[in-house]
Design a protein around this nucleic acid. Structure first.
Length: 191
DNA sequence: CGAACGATTAGCT
DNA sequence: GCTAATCGTTCGA
């Protein structure tokens, strides 16, 4: 069961963002015990026109340039909170956007926060996931191996699919979006 | 200092 | 499929 999986620490986030994004599919993410299995991620890197870190450190993106294995939280469209995992070495500016979860723990809490019952709609997008897990700017820069976070390695092999990232206007040719094959909890299907 | 623009979502056609 | 909502960040003058 998921609770017996190994907890991921900073050393698990030293790889490049694509490798980490792929490896995170099937892992379990909990915030204060609420969350589920990661089924969709996207990779962003310093040498990546679509990345917040592309133009160098700013007050907003500084966490992306901090130590790996920590959270980078940003506000999207002035409305939504989105969660990233910082990877690569400190100062590089790479991260993985967590785009969707398969609800597994604290489902009633997530339903209340989202005002919805449908499990498929609870965490099927970065902003939805942020609302369901009560992600806020308070968590920016926080370690992923410390409370309130808990990130557990996948407990078995999973089949991962990839494709172009969603909602960006640059570097659309890079297949840096990753998902759990056949999952019904993705933000949109892979083609 | 002003202005444009999102790593999105929900709701309507 | 199309668009409004909504506001902090970024960039140009």
């Amino acid at each position: 069961m998921a609770s017996s999986s190994r907890a991921l620490g900073p050393a698990d986030f030293l790889g490049d963002s694509q490798a980490v994004a792929r490896a995170l599919i099937g892992a379990t993410l909990l915030v204060d015990g609420v969350g589920g299995r990661i089924v969709e991620t996207e990779a962003y890197d310093r040498e990546d026109p679509a990345s917040h870190s592309f133009s160098g450190p700013t007050p907003r993106n500084q966490a992306m340039f901090g130590p790996p294995g920590r959270a980078y939280v940003y506000r999207s469209y002035g409305i939504h909170w989105c969660l990233n995992f910082v990877c690569r070495e400190e100062g590089h500016g790479a991260g993985v956007l967590i785009r969707a979860l398969e609800p597994g723990a604290g489902i009633a809490i997530m339903q209340a926060r989202r005002g919805l019952e449908d499990l498929r709609l609870l965490c099927s997008g970065p902003g939805k996931l942020g609302q369901a897990l009560a992600i806020t700017h308070d968590l920016n820069g926080c370690r992923l191996d410390r409370t309130p976070f808990k990130v557990l390695a996948p407990d078995h092999e999973v089949q991962v699919v990839s494709g172009p990232r969603i909602g960006i206007s640059k570097a659309m040719d890079l297949p840096w979006r990753f998902g759990l094959a056949g999952s019904r909890f993705l933000s949109t299907r892979f083609r």
